[in-house]
């Protein structure tokens, strides 16, 4: 599904990713954990194609395609979805309109006809139920005036609408109360298929109690320094990240 080889990236003069290697296979859930400033959010932004970051070295292949060669919108249309840590408000742009445009752009990329209004509304209602999204929010501008929890639900709702192959959840748990966390996680789990993969980026264990990872990585100072099974989550929670730092310094 996704293969990252020796990825380096910088913003301005500051190098943030210093050689990331990662392989994600279909059906797998990977967790990327790490202390603040390790480069977790940069990694997700670089994969999604945000232009403020410069990729200075390395390769990323997504389903055999050179992902870095594609503009952000084509990466999305190829099936890479990113749930934003801070979903952006777009005043004046109605949520339904926004989603319809997005869905139909995806369809056009695949050579499909745009969805008829009726079919679109049906799809929307179906997916709304999945994350218990308040229908009233659909008539508002994208994310405008949404609470933190509503914004995150809206991310997962959009993910459901767009049916990506690879979902990158960037700190989706931040700002969520326990009920919202449960709803959002359930949504993600329901959408999971043997053909789709998920990368969960998080600081805490909390989210990983609900979305159970197959593989856990620790990103530290722009590199993945440790990879293990899900048991690593509990170990990190217990010992904190200092333990990793110490281990690194000893080597």
């Amino acid at each position: 599904m996704l293969e990252i080889k020796d990825l380096h990236a910088k913003v301005g003069d500051k190098e943030i990713l210093k050689g990331v290697n990662l392989v994600v296979k279909p059906g797998e859930v990977h967790a990327i954990m790490g202390p603040n400033g390790a480069g977790k959010s940069t990694l997700s932004s670089v994969l999604a194609g945000r232009e403020v970051f410069d990729v200075t070295k390395g390769e990323v292949h997504f389903q055999g395609k050179d992902l870095l060669a594609l503009p952000a919108e084509d990466r999305a249309r190829e099936g890479v979805f990113m749930s934003f840590q801070y979903p952006v408000e777009i005043p004046g742009v109605n949520t339904v309109n926004f989603l319809k445009t997005a869905v139909n752009e995806h369809r056009k990329y695949k050579g499909l006809e745009p969805l008829a209004a009726g079919a679109f509304l049906k799809l929307m209602r179906e997916k709304q139920a999945l994350v218990e999204m308040d229908a009233k929010l659909m008539n508002r501008s994208v994310n405008e005036g949404f609470s933190g929890g509503e914004k995150k639900k809206n991310e997962i709702f959009q993910m459901a609408m767009l049916e990506p192959k690879l979902s990158i959840l960037d700190e989706t748990d931040s700002g969520l109360d326990i009920d919202a966390l449960r709803i959002v996680s359930q949504g993600v789990n329901t959408l999971k298929t043997p053909e789709t993969s998920t990368i969960v980026i998080t600081h805490y264990q909390r989210l990983l109690d609900y979305i159970v990872p197959d593989v856990v990585h620790v990103l530290y100072d722009g590199r993945i320094v440790k990879t293990a099974g899900r048991e690593l989550v509990a170990e990190l929670e217990e010992k904190g990240y200092d333990w990793i730092k110490k281990e690194l310094e000893e080597h």
Binding site: M82, P87, Q158
Partner: peptide
């Protein structure tokens, strides 16, 4: 805002 739209497949 533009990047958010791009990420949803909108040019």
């Amino acid at each position: 805002q533009l990047f958010y739209c791009n990420q949803r497949g909108i040019s």
